[in-house]
Write a protein that binds this DNA or RNA. Structure first.
Lengths: 234, 234
DNA sequence: CGGGCAGCGTTTGCATGCAATGTATACTCA
DNA sequence: TGAGTATACATTGCATGCAAACGCTGCCCG
């Protein structure tokens, strides 16, 4: 229940951020092993801050204990399904709260406009078929909705879920039918928020994530195997 | 998004568990400062594992950065409200999923019976006016429902929320009206689950937590002050 | 008597060292 | 040739040491 990711100083935090970034960029394959020494050398720090960062990643489930050290966590189909169920409810709540705040005049008009622009940005990115850019734009929109909900704990929880699903969202674009429906669904959510209609906004958001969950297809190599060990980092 | 709190070895984890336990027991006052050296001496380990444990507590928001080291996190009224909003939705989802699993025959009859017994245990504990025992029993029931949902990520998230609210739940018992309503509401949730009625179970659970949120009154000393610093540990 | 400043002490943050653990490899024997 | 075992090594886990940062106290000056 960390409330926000405020900028902390220190190497340990820097390492943590760096690793998170690499994960989000898909720089490490699921199942790949990471060793403290290699990361320490790579990042130019000693093992101590690396240890702290890995401990945190371990607590967050982004890496899992492996035979020797830790391995990048994969996402099985079952796990993905569980995550999407949770995510659908959370994002439904976020949209609901955002709409409630809008109805109470606690949302700046600029915030709503920003949501609209984010929706357009996603549509534009999707049309370029740039998977990475699309995922970024999509995440930005959902983040904005999460922020508009005004509940720091919900926001933090959403970030955890997103990070755990991470790059996989990109895969959705392969499905042309789904790609076409995205904008429509996004617009429905924002429309509900703008109208200050919590029920409508929440329902639209929940339905959107459920649809995303159905479109999601995990990489087959993520399924649990006896030994999913990869090469050590670098 | 750690999926479960499996037993890890090592001093660092032991320190983490010990501190969590102390927090849950209310051994540290909110705002109280904790220093690495003092905890290390107290727990008979070096500062290194203490550092890792504190880092994790920091990430979870159970402690916050303080002038010198960290301080035990307090809970303001606004934060509590946000937490209860989130918790209501999460527990609603948990009950809903548990009922769904029941309807599909994925829940053992023994599990349902355990829920009933847990409800009775809470009622018994509340009648003794033992705040600590009541909180324990209540938490056990909610934990059982969370487990019955069969979604590890939801379960993990619930644990985070519960830990952040922690001992404060005890305070509810001061309100006799609320104390009397608890069992009734618990029974409604379990009835919904047993009947395999997701809608009813979810609604009952959500309403229950919302009622709990209304009954919750934070300690006034938790409100943000310029300096909420207490004595260093020990 | 109040405000600013300097020195001191505490506490963190990181690096390194050492011991323990468990794995993978190579070797031996059936 | 295959299985079992012993050995060596990679790697973690913790303790300690050292330097830097920060707050705090006491003093001096206005």
């Amino acid at each position: 229940m960390a409330v926000s990711s405020e900028s902390q100083p220190g190497s340990a935090h820097a390492v943590y951020v760096a690793l998170r970034h690499r994960f989000a960029e898909g720089q490490y394959a699921p199942g790949q092993r990471l060793t403290e020494a290699a990361l320490a050398t790579d990042l130019g720090v000693s093992r101590t801050p690396v240890r702290e960062a890995i401990g945190r990643l371990l607590a967050e489930g982004l890496v899992i204990p492996a035979a020797r050290g830790v391995a990048v966590a994969a996402l099985t189909a079952a796990e993905a399904e569980h995550l999407f169920v949770l995510r659908a409810t959370l994002e439904g709540l976020a949209a609901e709260l955002a709409a409630t705040r809008q109805a109470r005049g606690q949302l700046a008009p600029a915030d709503i406009d920003a949501l609209d622009r984010a929706v357009d940005a996603v549509e534009a990115a999707v049309q370029t078929h740039d998977a990475h850019a699309s995922a970024q734009a999509n995440l930005a929109l959902h983040r904005a909705i999460g922020a508009a909900a005004g509940n720091p704990f919900l926001e933090d929880t959403l970030h955890r879920v997103w990070d755990r699903i991470a790059v996989t969202t990109v895969a959705n674009l392969d499905d042309p039918h789904w790609a076409g429906a995205i904008t429509e669904q996004h617009q429905a959510i924002v429309a509900g928020i703008r109208a200050g209609d919590p029920k409508a906004a929440g329902k639209a958001a929940k339905a959107h994530i459920e649809a995303a969950g159905r479109a999601y297809k995990p990489a087959p190599e993520n399924e649990p195997r006896a030994a999913a060990a990869g090469q050590p980092a670098r």
